[in-house]
Nucleic acid binder design. Structure first.
Length: 821
DNA sequence: GCACCTCGAGTTCC
DNA sequence: CTCGAGGTGC
């Protein structure tokens, strides 16, 4: 993203003085270049620096820094020149305001200069108040005068254009250029379908329309995806992509780029009776078939501006395109004329920005984190930057491939992006700023010397997988701690007060080695642990009162641990942290098999017949329980009276799943396909007599299949699996309730998706009630969704529902459905 | 065998 | 919230 130099020399992103890293100076906080105290040298340096970036952007079409950064330098120079006018030279970028047009595009002299708008850098409501106050002062309005009317609009993050219509026909499109002269990009602009080549109901001799070309975010993503597939370089953001497309020399390439346009004003006009207000003009332009953003209004007084600013801030992330702020214009043209201009900026308009969503910073280091499953994740440790409203110090690099694709190295200057609630991400490296002594391309194995940074076990990356993993399992303290944290989590055993910090101490000081140990902790253990932890951290000896607080804390924690002893079976299963077993799969296991005892002894083949459990998941579960250590941990839990409170008989529907044909197929014997299993079962084949099937004197299956079964059975573990399967089948059948499946409830077969905040119940409650009525609750909207239940602040799921035509109901609608039964 | 739908897992900051 | 991958239905 390069600054809109043409338009807004004042266009700084309103970044607090976090300071920015210098080229080759990996320390943020120190301004780059000569000491700001020496203003002569400083100004010379700024000029050179800015001219260099201009050249990179406008002539080489290869931006070197993000616009917030450019603006910061520009503003610094402008301020210097203001206080020391003798520093102003003709070659100063502040005097030119723009760059050279590319030689390949014909220059266009604008009939009416394209001016810039002053930017209000106070990103709070104060910015709006200040503007209103300024305007009222200029108009000499007293405090009792009625509030002014303003046209409030979005400030699009794109490229400004002047469209010239003569007699209603588009004859020329030009970029802003330096404001006086731009580039003729008519051929390219003609390819944008949104821009009418002929105006509806207007044949004025001259009508110039001004607006912004931009690219929608979704279109940008898709285009970048294609670029990457073709092995071509991806664009950093929609703005760059749009600017690049408009400045394509080959308009057939522009035609393939998904550009959009919004009109926001007028240029030269002849023979057209313009309305007397800005909002009226926009309405008129819309009526002529020009795209005009709907997100605009006539705001009344300062309060109206503040309200609009807040409103747009709230919807900013849901807009399909990027904006960097809003624009306020005095609505009445008569008043605009009275206000006039200061130098090259109108006094009647201001751009009011939001905190920048992109910033530059330096990568101090690349750390590797160990996840619960042993996944090794590279994390960029950043010089703190204020971006998108928060200070960011860490950003995930996901995995080795991703890190290398972006080629992030220690010491690099990177662009960090954070929009709304979105997790900060490293968008890309500013290669121009890579220092001589930057690190090498990231190499996980080399970096860790083949060892887990926490436990030293060797690390491994499976063929075809993106992740490196620590092989230490629960030997690895990082994995153990997270396993315990997972176990204690709210959606699992829900042990309140057992946060990461305490787990860290409990494990490090040796009080807890595995989850079962939690239930053997005593008051003394906890107090001792706390004392030792405090001592280690150098915290002053306890006062009597502190001792009391510590006791209270320990009592509470013990109580919470005690209270967690009898969870629903599915929660306990989820809490164990078996790979591929999340909330839903845990529920499936509990619903179908009913008792922990069955689940912990089920062979993979049995698990495979359950819905939504395939080879990978079945094996992960069986493997977990095959581990001696895990079975011991379970036994210890049981011994400590940790027991699911809702064990029950297996689900009646399991009877069908236990049919011989299904179980035979679930053994996954080579060549013994599902169809063959069914045929064999019809002829009386059963797992209990698999040996017979494999014998040469039977002809239930073709010879080659028979041989395959025999070979398979020859392996001991396979035979044991068959035995286990048969035993479990018998046990389960014996426990199955008589008769058919129970009544399924009113909402059987219906799938719900919950989104937003419901007025009177939590989402968990809503989910529980839907499930109690036999319905399903899913996390994502698709064609199969029956209803989307939307509350306050519903987000993308609601949008998706509308796209797919899925009915949307509110809480009241849901209650009605629930009560109908 | 492919396309679509889900689920699991990881992630940042206050 | 998003991405990747597992599972299922066509």
């Amino acid at each position: 993203m390069q600054p809109d130099l043409f338009s807004s020399p004042e266009d700084a992103a309103g970044v607090p003085a976090a300071g920015s890293p210098a080229a080759g100076t990996p320390a943020a906080g120190t301004p780059p270049g000569p000491d700001p105290g020496n203003w002569q040298e400083r100004a010379a340096w700024l000029k050179a620096e800015l001219n260099r970036h201009n050249h990179a952007y406008y002539v080489l079409d290869n931006p070197s820094i993000p616009d917030a950064e450019y603006d910061k330098l520009f503003r610094e120079l402008a301020t210097l020149e203001q206080t020391h006018p003798d520093l102003i030279t003709p070659d100063s970028p502040t005097q030119r305001v723009g760059g050279k047009p590319l030689p390949q595009f014909a220059p266009v002299r604008h009939a009416l200069p394209m001016l810039s708008i002053r930017t209000e850098t106070d990103t709070t409501a104060g910015g709006a108040l200040a503007f209103d106050a300024r305007v009222r002062r200029e108009l000499e309005l007293g405090p009792d005068a009625p509030p002014l009317q303003y046209a409030a609009e979005l400030k699009f993050d794109g490229l400004a254009l002047n469209l010239r219509y003569e007699n209603g026909v588009l004859v020329q499109a030009a970029t802003r250029g330096d404001g006086a002269t731009g580039e003729d990009v008519t051929q390219n602009i003609r390819t944008i379908r949104q821009i009418p080549l002929r105006l509806k109901g207007c044949d004025a001799p001259v009508l110039e329309v001004r607006g912004e070309v931009y690219m929608r975010r979704d279109a940008f993503e898709r285009m970048n995806e294609r670029q990457r597939e073709k092995g071509e370089k991806a664009f950093v953001n929609p703005r760059n992509a749009a600017a690049g497309a408009v400045r394509q020399l080959d308009s057939s390439i522009t035609a393939q780029r998904p550009l959009s346009f919004f009109a926001y004003g007028l240029g030269a006009v002849q023979g057209w009776d313009a309305p007397d207000s800005h909002s009226g003009t926009l309405d008129a332009l819309a009526a002529m078939g020009l795209p005009v953003s709907e997100e605009r209004r006539v705001a009344v007084g300062a309060a109206g501006l503040v309200e609009f600013h807040a409103h747009v801030a709230a919807i900013r992330d849901t807009l399909p395109f990027d904006i960097d702020g809003v624009v306020y214009k005095v609505n009445s043209y008569a008043l605009q004329r009275r206000l006039g201009f200061v130098s090259r900026e109108p006094r009647w308009a201001v751009a009011h920005k939001y905190p920048a969503q992109e910033q530059m910073t330096v990568v101090r280091d690349i750390d590797v984190q160990v996840g619960r499953t042993g996944k090794l994740t590279p994390v960029a440790k950043l010089e703190p930057v204020f971006v998108g409203g928060v200070t960011v110090t860490n950003a995930t690099l996901h995995n080795e491939d991703e890190t290398r694709r972006k080629d992030v190295r220690v010491g690099d200057t990177v662009i960090v992006r954070r929009a709304g609630d979105v997790i900060p991400e490293v968008v890309g490296v500013v290669l121009e700023r890579r220092p001589q002594d930057a690190g090498q391309p990231f190499d996980m194995f080399q970096r860790l010397q083949g060892k887990c940074p926490v436990c030293g076990s060797h690390i491994d990356r499976e063929q075809g997988e993106a992740d490196w993993r620590c092989t230490g399992g629960l030997v690895c303290a990082a994995q153990r701690k997270q396993a315990i944290a997972h176990f204690a989590g709210r959606r699992m055993m829900d042990i309140e007060g057992l946060g990461d910090r305490y787990i860290e101490n409990l494990v490090d000081l040796g009080y807890v080695h595995s989850i079962a140990d939690l239930y053997r902790l005593t008051l003394d253990d906890l107090l001792e642990m706390k004392r030792r932890a405090d001592e280690r951290d150098g915290i002053t000896p306890e006062t009597v009162q502190k001792g009391k607080i510590a006791t209270k804390w320990a009592e509470n924690l013990l109580a919470a641990i005690g209270a967690s002893k009898n969870p629903p079976l599915e929660r306990l299963l989820f809490a164990l942290g078996i790979r591929h077993v999340g909330e839903t799969t845990a529920k499936t296991l509990a619903d179908w098999l009913g008792r922990l005892d069955h689940i912990r002894h089920a062979p993979a083949a049995l698990l495979r017949v359950l819905p939504d459990i395939g080879d990978t998941v079945a094996e992960a579960i069986a493997e977990f329980f095959a581990e001696e250590r895990n079975q011991q941990a379970l036994d210890k839990l049981l011994a400590a009276n940790v027991k699911p409170r809702d064990e029950r008989a297996p689900n009646a529907k399991l009877r069908d799943k236990l049919a011989q044909a299904s179980l035979l197929a679930a053994l996954r014997i080579p060549k013994f396909t599902e169809t063959r299993c069914r045929q064999a079962a019809e002829k009386g084949a059963v797992i209990a007599a698999l040996d017979e099937l494999a014998r040469s004197d039977t002809i239930v299956v073709p010879n080659n299949v028979r041989e395959s079964i025999a070979a398979w059975l020859a392996e001991d573990r396979h035979r044991r699996q068959v035995d286990a399967l048969e035993r479990m089948r018998a046990t389960l059948l014996a426990e199955l309730p008589e008769g058919g499946a129970a009544d399924e409830g009113r909402l059987a077969g219906k799938t719900f998706v919950l989104t937003g905040t419901l007025p009177n119940m939590t989402r968990d409650e809503a989910q529980a009630r839907i499930e109690a009525a036999g319905g399903k609750v899913s996390g994502s909207v698709s064609k199969k969704t029956t209803y989307v239940v939307a509350g306050e602040e519903a987000g993308s799921k609601l949008t998706k529902a509308q796209e797919l035509g899925v009915p949307v109901i509110d809480e009241a609608g849901l209650l009605r459905l629930l009560e109908e039964q």
